[in-house]
Simulated scan of single mutants.
Amino acid sequence: MDRPVLLHVAILLALTALGVGTARAASPTPSPARQAQLIHLVRQDCGACHGMQLSGGLGPSLSPAQLADRPDSSLVATVLQGRPGTPMPGWQAFLSASEAGWIITQLKQGFPPLPPCDPPAATC
């Protein structure tokens, strides 16, 4: 193989090792159980920086009004990749692209509250 081909192969192997372009497959709409997990993740983990009501804190507000004019694809990329130079981490190790898209759709509609814990579930 010539040098450019080897370079391309090396880059593809490195990207694969890093998980770039290999998001886990998931259905467009997560199952009800996964939705409950995602709601818990957003309310607890994202809420730690964006405020428990998602109205802002260390991170900006995630209210429908704040997100309305932002492209979904840009918001999904932020969820998955984070924002370099800021405290915003990437979540692609925990979320598929379709799950991140579901979260963005829910945020733009007004994010659901935590599900009730009766009976207690693993996400409570």
Rank of each mutant, 00 (worst) to 15 (best):
A33K: 13
R34Q: 11
R34N: 05
Q35I: 07
A36Q: 13
Q37S: 08
Q37N: 05
L38A: 01
L38M: 06
I39T: 15
I39H: 03
H40K: 06
V42P: 00
R43H: 07
Q44V: 13
D45T: 13
G47K: 09
A48T: 13
C49W: 09
H50G: 02
H50N: 09
H50I: 07
G51V: 03
Q53H: 11
L54W: 11
L54C: 13
G56L: 14
G59C: 10
G59H: 12
P60Y: 07
P60T: 09
S61P: 02
S61C: 10
S61Q: 13
L62D: 00
S63W: 03
P64C: 05
P64I: 02
A65H: 12
A65L: 14
A65G: 11
Q66K: 15
A68G: 04
A68V: 08
R70K: 14
R70P: 00
D72L: 09
D72S: 14
D72M: 11
S73R: 13
S73C: 03
S73T: 14
S74R: 10
L75Y: 04
V76M: 12
A77N: 15
A77W: 04
A77Y: 02
A77D: 15
A77V: 03
T78R: 13
T78F: 01
T78K: 12
V79T: 12
L80Y: 02
L80M: 15
Q81C: 04
G82L: 05
G82K: 09
R83P: 02
R83E: 13
R83D: 04
P84W: 04
P84L: 09
T86A: 11
P87W: 06
P87L: 08
M88Y: 03
M88N: 04
M88C: 05
P89V: 01
P89C: 10
W91L: 13
W91C: 05
Q92G: 08
Q92T: 05
A93Q: 12
A93H: 07
A93I: 04
A93L: 09
F94K: 05
L95W: 06
A97P: 04
A97Y: 02
S98E: 15
S98C: 06
S98N: 15
E99M: 04
E99Y: 03
E99H: 05
A100L: 09
G101E: 01
G101A: 09
W102E: 00
W102P: 00
I104G: 00
I104R: 01
Q106Y: 02
L107V: 04
L107E: 01
L107W: 04
K108H: 03
K108V: 02
G110V: 12
G110H: 10
F111I: 02
P112H: 06
P113Q: 10
P115N: 06
C117S: 14
